[in-house]
Design a protein around this nucleic acid. Structure first.
Lengths: 72, 72
DNA sequence: GATGAATGACAAGGACGCTTTACATTTCGG
DNA sequence: CCGAAATGTAAAGCGTCCTTGTCATTCATC
């Protein structure tokens, strides 16, 4: 599932580590999410939406018929 | 994390099995979600929102400082 | 009272989400 | 260049999500 975490994070002028702190997850988790290695849990998705100041639907793109390769 | 799946499902006049079919998950998963045993993955949350015809934020309640015991 | 539909529950198993630890690479100001 | 900050990666480990299979309970209708 595609997301706009990176573009919204840099829009706030935050490093991955800074965002991780605000989300209370590890820096590696933020990195993995931005790189599309996996999707966040629903509770984490809500925290991301809150911290980035946008609704979940505006951050995560529901691409319907998409397979969604975890990178590779 | 609390949700309104049951009330919205019955509002549509569907059984758990019918909703499960539409979501492409097992009946047990729908039952577990309604009973708050765990939260759905983000992709499943999007499908639930689509099938129930409401935004994710209207179905799943972000109770902020809530511990959120998976029942027990 | 028997039958069937709907719901609740539990166990075992596989895949995913997130952690910590650790190391490599890129970027950039001096 | 040099050093430090930021980013990318990997592995081991644990808990969560979702599956199939099975059984119990409740309720309605016959």
């Amino acid at each position: 599932m595609r997301n706009r975490i990176r573009e919204m994070r840099t829009g706030h002028g935050w490093s991955q580590a800074e965002l991780a702190l605000r989300l209370e997850v590890s820096r590696q988790t933020v990195n993995a999410l931005e790189r599309g290695r996996y999707d966040p849990s629903l509770p984490l998705a809500f925290r991301i939406a809150r911290v980035l100041g946008a609704p979940i639907e505006a951050i995560f793109l529901d691409e319907e018929g998409e397979a969604g390769q975890p990178d590779s």
